[in-house]
Design a protein around this nucleic acid. Structure first.
Length: 420
RNA sequence: GGGGGAAUGUCCCGAGCGGCAAAGGGGGCGGACUGUAAAUCCGCUGGCUAUGCCUUCGCAGGUUCGAGUCCUGCUUCCCCCA
């Protein structure tokens, strides 16, 4: 990033100040377009799963800021490319999704975008096209003649992603080699349809985006631009968004709101400031104050981070509730009925359930074997009492005043078992 | 087309004279210490109706009391030659 560049547009000012930018093809160009108003930009999203996860949040936030600063965000669904199966993963074993699956995934993912963006027909309203709309209609010969002739194989071979594979003698399939052509074509098509001038994405997308810019020039589009965000890792180097339990999903039906709140609450000290800037709307002054907190006080900043980030996705009320549940659970050790709850058949409980099985049923541990091991290392608690006998039975006698049994795995994971 | 090598615990890497639930890492999980952090230290890291039973070393057969280990065929990947 050029050190001397001072943005005039709100859009770039915010992005630079908050740390969203890794690379940009032309700061002055993007700045001027944003300043002029109604800059349209897109980011491509996979729809291989029914929910996006935290790893996509930086991208979503960039679109959100674009809209808030007067631009038009275009989240593009990769329905067409999903249908082919993105080969850029290591394994080819990824199953191909049926059309119905893809449609269902799109609907589900759109619900998340609706939380961050305003959709509609206005000039700065977001639209969510699917590249299947044009990719599936492509005719191979036409595509080769109209688009393919603009691609220089010499150049494609010199791209980092390709060069690396060739140097290592790793297989590079033809479809994979073509993937960047399809993505480049998306950019041109989105310019045609929506006047889209900017493509954003993670830093790993740089090569593909620039290829799109090049194709645009050759196909008579005006100057297009690229802007990438840094690849996010935590301060200790782990990738964002994965925990032991799996990915940190954005859809509430795949990850309870309470767990989402906890994910942010457990942020490492060193990441708090960076995350506040990237994942909340809080004003910079406030963030600077929070990240300056030292020692144990930084926990206050983490709570605010958790509540703000959760509120944006799940709503203020849900976020406050999660925060309150956490406060009672951790700071008072009290039982709250708002912890995630798992139901169990009343008759089953009356007859007595082994503790190990109870923890498996609650989904806290994957197997009774694991539960057994955790008992040995003192990691399981029933109603806050350490489990010492792995043969113990849970019965109605264990129900607390609220009519539930509290199961805890480690210090942070709690589930309520409720007879039904 | 010819020759050589490889595939191991369903997270990854990786040892493995015919007695193996299989060394060692990384990662992950739990415990201690803390602040629901990091760092550090300790323990654990196939499944089950469990002093036992079942399933694992690319796939399918075979030899053997016994196969990750030996033999045959197959699949996939890599290297060298044409």
């Amino acid at each position: 990033m050029s050190a001397t560049f001072v943005p005039k547009s709100d859009f770039l000012s915010v992005l630079m100040e908050r740390g969203y930018i890794h690379q940009c093809s032309d700061f002055e160009g993007v700045d001027a377009r944003a300043k002029a108003g109604e800059l349209t930009a897109y980011i491509g999203f996979d729809c291989t799963a029914s929910s996006l996860h935290v790893g996509s949040l930086v991208q979503i936030m960039m679109l959100r800021w674009l809209q808030k600063t007067g631009g038009k965000p275009v989240p593009l669904m990769g329905g067409g490319t999903t249908r082919v199966g993105d080969p850029s993963g290591k394994d080819e074993s990824r199953r191909l999704l049926s059309l119905d699956d893809i449609e269902a995934n799109k609907t589900s993912i759109k619900q998340v975008f609706a939380k961050f963006l305003t959709f509609g027909n206005g000039p700065t309203d977001a639209v969510m096209p699917d590249n299947a709309e044009w990719l599936t209609a492509l005719n191979y010969i036409d595509f080769l003649r109209d688009v393919g002739r603009h691609f220089s194989v010499n150049r494609m071979l010199s791209m980092d992603s390709v060069k690396m594979r060739l140097e290592r003698d790793q297989e590079l399939s033809f479809i994979e080699f073509n993937y960047m052509c399809l993505q480049a074509y998306d950019f041109v098509e989105l310019h045609r349809r929506y006047g889209c001038l900017l493509q954003m994405g993670g830093s790993d997308q740089w090569g593909n985006i620039v290829t799109g810019i090049d194709l645009g020039r050759r196909m008579g589009a005006p100057q297009l631009y690229a802007l990438t965000s840094p690849l996010l890792t935590t301060a200790s180097g782990a990738k964002m968004g994965k925990t032991a339990a799996g990915a940190v999903w954005l859809n509430a039906d795949m990850l309870p709101v309470y767990d989402y709140w906890q994910y942010w609450r457990n942020t490492e000290d060193a990441d708090v400031g960076r995350f506040l800037k990237l994942f909340t709307d809080l004003p910079m002054d406030e963030i600077r104050r929070l990240e300056a907190l030292a020692g144990a006080e930084i926990n206050e900043a983490k709570k605010i981070l958790a509540t703000e980030a959760t509120a944006m996705l799940h709503g203020r009320a849900e976020a406050e509730a999660a925060s309150e549940t956490a406060r009672k659970t951790f700071e008072e050790g009290a039982l709250t009925t708002s912890l995630p709850t798992v139901e169990i058949a009343a008759g089953e409980l009356a007859a007595g359930v082994g503790v190990l099985n109870a923890f498996v049923k609650a989904g806290l541990v994957p197997s009774t074997g694991e539960a057994r091991r955790q008992v040995k290392s003192g990691g399981l608690r029933v109603n806050d009492a350490l489990v010492t006998d792995e043969r113990a039975q849970l019965t109605n006698a264990d129900l607390m005043g609220e009519g539930v049994i509290k199961l805890s795995f480690g210090k942070k994971k709690h589930i309520l078992l409720a007879p039904r």
